[in-house]
């Protein structure tokens, strides 16, 4: 007991979602936990509810029956009319969530202790074992909740789970270095090579990201690089070639995935009252996806 017990204090994470039977976030059947909070603001982000560092009230207009109970129930006058939430006034009291008869309102972002999460992870162990899967920690930027990871990662390894960290890499290298002691695989996003493009569309410079990837690759942990392809942003041959060249000069990358933009997350912007700033059709053409694959292949990248 006391401070000598590793569990003497429970550390919790701010979680938006735990997805079981996750089959696209690393090998096999996995359980993916999405941590809330990100230091990039990619304008195409498909998990916008994971950007903000604190819980938010979320509204689903597809099930709303416009009874307007929510606005009358709100003690702070934060709901102007059904589902139209003033996030600045909202204090997350949850009155509207409790009263909504149709489950149209919810609070996204919940604190979960590492043992709570571990219990969920353990439930699908037979599937991990059968499929070579495990646990993925994604977000948001999971490495921003480092105190939680300090507590959680050793527990995962104690359970012998295959651990994947899904990161954008815009963190101090020490964070990556620490988590690399426990992770079996990093999913590392490279969104753009040109610093201008990166800065303009994600809000951050990419020098530290590329440097982190380079240094991480020397630590020997397996890395899969994921490149989102967004029309009008990075769907140029030069950009893809620059990324590909950089990756080809970085040893230790065992898989590269090209992920065409999808609009899965667009609806979520509205639900949390966040403006969606991407203009035009961001879907890359099939032709460009083929070109991008060709370019990557010409640099001998291990495309999936």
């Amino acid at each position: 007991m006391g401070i000598f017990d590793p569990d003497w204090h429970e550390v919790s994470a701010l979680v938006t979602n735990i997805q079981r039977f996750s089959v696209n976030d690393g090998p096999g059947i996995r359980t993916t936990v999405f941590l809330k909070g990100c230091n990039l603001h990619c304008c195409w982000c498909h998990n916008p509810e994971c950007i903000n560092m604190h819980p938010q009230t979320q509204f689903d207009d597809t099930v709303c029956q416009k009874c307007d109970l929510c606005s009358t129930s709100c003690p702070n006058g934060a709901i102007r009319s059904y589902g139209n939430i003033d996030q600045m006034k909202c204090v997350l009291c949850g009155c509207c969530v409790k009263i909504c008869p149709y489950d149209a309102l919810s609070i996204v972002g919940e604190r979960k202790t590492s043992s709570e999460l571990l219990e969920t992870m353990k439930k699908d162990r037979p599937y991990y074992q059968e499929s070579g899967g495990g646990v993925t920690i994604s977000g948001g930027e999971p490495l921003l909740q480092l105190d939680f990871l300090h507590n959680f990662l050793p527990k995962l390894k104690q359970e012998n789970f295959h651990v994947v960290i899904d990161t954008a890499g815009c963190v101090p290298f020490s964070s990556l270095e620490y988590t690399a002691c426990f992770a079996d695989l990093f999913l590392f996003d490279v969104k753009a090579f040109s610093p201008e493009i990166h800065k303009k569309y994600t809000g951050a410079d990419n020098a530290v990201i590329l440097e982190n990837l380079r240094r991480l690759s020397s630590l020997g942990t397996e890395i899969w690089v994921r490149i989102p392809i967004i029309a009008g942003i990075n769907d140029t041959q030069d950009e893809i070639a620059a990324i590909a060249r950089f990756l080809s000069e970085t040893p230790g990358i065992s898989q590269v995935d090209l992920l065409p933009f999808h609009d899965y997350g667009v609806k979520k912007y509205e639900s949390i009252g966040k403006p969606y700033l991407l203009r035009g059709d961001p879907h890359p053409s099939d032709d460009f996806m083929l070109t991008a694959k060709r370019i990557c292949s010409s640099f001998c990248l291990p495309l999936r």
């Binding site: 696209n24 597809t62 992920l259 065409p260 999808h262 609009d263 899965y264 667009v266 609806k267």
Partner: peptide, 24 residues
């Protein structure tokens, strides 16, 4: 409401069908 558990493949990933944009 009746199909909350319907998983569909979108492109490069899978999602619950009802969480998608009407156009998607």
């Amino acid at each position: 409401g009746k199909y909350k558990n319907l998983v569909v493949r979108v492109s490069g990933f899978s999602a619950y069908f009802c969480s998608l944009l009407p156009a998607t």
